[in-house]
Amino acid sequence: MTSSPVSGRRGFLLAGGALGAGTLLAGCTSNAPAGEKQDAAVSGGGDNAAPGKQVTIGFSAPAADHGWLAAMTTNARAQAEQYSDVTFNLTEGSNDVNQQIAHVETLVNQQVDVLVVLPKDGKALTNAARRAMDAGIPVVNVDRVFDSPEAYRAWIGGDNYGMGANAADFIAAELRRRGISDPVIAEIAGTDSLPLTQERSSGFRDGLSQHDLSVSRRVAADFTVESGQREAANLLQASDRIDAIWNHDDDQGIGVLAAIEAAGRDEFFLVGGAGSSTMMKHIQADNRVVKATVLYSPSMASSAVSLARLLAQGRGMAALAEHEIPRSMTTYSAVVTKANVEEYLDLGFSS
């Protein structure tokens, strides 16, 4: 790959900055008349861990029928328990959208101080969240975004496009390391109708294209063990040769690995998605086809609770100069490999 014009220009600017730093500094400090007071620089400060006023956080999420979803609720509860100034009002998870709407409305009627909502369906929950905002209850929207920005005060979620792009980069590097040219690259996606799946696939395609590679075979599962096993079996049966596979989700990856073992295939390597402890242990042992997983960590639920607490207490983030909580935060999809897996084991969740 050739260097981009931006990277070349950045190198020039860095070099110029190193040569002229003293001159630039002198020029900046001499612009004001002698004796005139300079404006103070804005900086972060405070201690977000220090107790604030007592607040009640309402939490709503879908049923924990999936390892990642279960970990989201577990992480949120555990984070709330760390704060002596937080009362955590957890509703029962449900995959019935109407029931989740009712749960959110109940929390609003209870006049909680702030809401954290991971919607089953962002579009369907938008009006309920907007009613909370209209009632003066700030909403932290987690992962699956509402249809209107007026339905939430802050959003935190994963980088689906970045997941795909980072998976592509790892696969391209590993193929080069193995000396494989003209590779057959397969993709086992999640539910195709979901925007998050579409974003992951788009990032994967775009990432591969940066390395002059493309997806050769693609199937779509449904984020379940059963669908992962079924679609992986179909993929393997239809493909005599595969060099690399990216599987979007480590929960469905349990089924994918079962299909691979049943087929007796091991000529390829597999990259997972989300970062389950099961896949991380396979990566650590290095005795299966799975060689990496791209994080989409449920730790975002812990961060959502922390943000909700600060919102309800009228505080900003101590490490940032802004006085208010940011409007949105996107987590990073790090690639976990044998070289760094020990650093990320604490983020793993049970599949």
Results as ranks from 00 to 15, higher is better:
Met1Lys: 15
Pro5Lys: 13
Arg9Val: 08
Gly11Met: 09
Gly16Trp: 12
Gly17Gln: 13
Ala21Glu: 14
Thr23Tyr: 13
Thr23Leu: 14
Ser30Thr: 10
Ala32Lys: 15
Ala34His: 14
Lys37Arg: 09
Gly44Thr: 12
Gly45Tyr: 06
Asn48Arg: 07
Asn48Thr: 15
Lys53Asp: 15
Val55Arg: 02
Phe59Gln: 00
Ser60Thr: 08
Ser60Cys: 07
Ala63His: 06
Asp65Pro: 04
His66Phe: 14
His66Val: 11
Leu69Phe: 14
Ala70Asp: 13
Thr74Arg: 07
Thr74Phe: 10
Arg77Leu: 09
Gln79Gly: 02
Glu81Tyr: 06
Ser84Leu: 05
Thr91Pro: 08
Thr91Trp: 07
Ser94Lys: 09
Val97Cys: 10
Val104Arg: 01
Glu105Pro: 07
Thr106Gln: 08
Thr106Gly: 11
Val112Met: 04
Leu118His: 03
Asp121Phe: 02
Leu125His: 09
Asn127Cys: 11
Ala129Val: 06
Arg130Ser: 08
Arg130Pro: 12
Met133Val: 06
Ala135Lys: 10
Pro138Asn: 07
Val140Pro: 01
Val140Lys: 02
Ser148Glu: 03
Gly157Tyr: 03
Gly158Arg: 13
Gly158Tyr: 00
Tyr161Val: 15
Gly162Glu: 06
Gly162Tyr: 00
Gly164Val: 07
Ala165Ile: 05
Ile171Arg: 03
Ala172Tyr: 02
Ala172Val: 09
Ala173Gly: 11
Ala173Thr: 09
Glu174Ile: 13
Ile180Trp: 06
Ile185Ser: 04
Thr191Arg: 13
Ser193Trp: 03
Leu194Gln: 13
Gln198Phe: 11
Glu199Val: 15
Arg200Cys: 05
Arg205Val: 03
Arg217Asn: 11
Arg217Phe: 00
Arg218Leu: 14
Phe223Met: 05
Glu226Asn: 06
Ser227Phe: 03
Gln229Asp: 07
Glu231Gly: 04
Ala232Trp: 00
Ala238Phe: 02
Arg241Ile: 06
Arg241Tyr: 06
Arg241Asp: 07
Asp249Ala: 12
Asp250Pro: 05
Asp250Tyr: 11
Asp251Pro: 05
Gly253Leu: 10
Gly255Leu: 11
Val256Asn: 01
Ala258Thr: 13
Ala258Glu: 01
Ala262Lys: 11
Ala263Leu: 05
Phe268Gly: 00
Phe269Glu: 09
Gly275Phe: 01
Ser276Asn: 15
Lys281Trp: 10
Ala285Thr: 07
Ala285Glu: 08
Val290Ala: 05
Thr293Phe: 01
Tyr296Phe: 11
Ser297Trp: 02
Ser299Phe: 12
Ser303Asp: 07
Ala304Phe: 03
Ala308His: 04
Pro326Met: 01
Pro326Lys: 00
Arg327Ser: 15
Thr330Cys: 03
Thr331Gly: 12
Val335Pro: 07
Lys338Ile: 15
Asn340Val: 14
Val341Leu: 07
Glu342Leu: 10
Leu345Thr: 15
Leu345Trp: 14
Gly348Lys: 11
Ser350Phe: 14
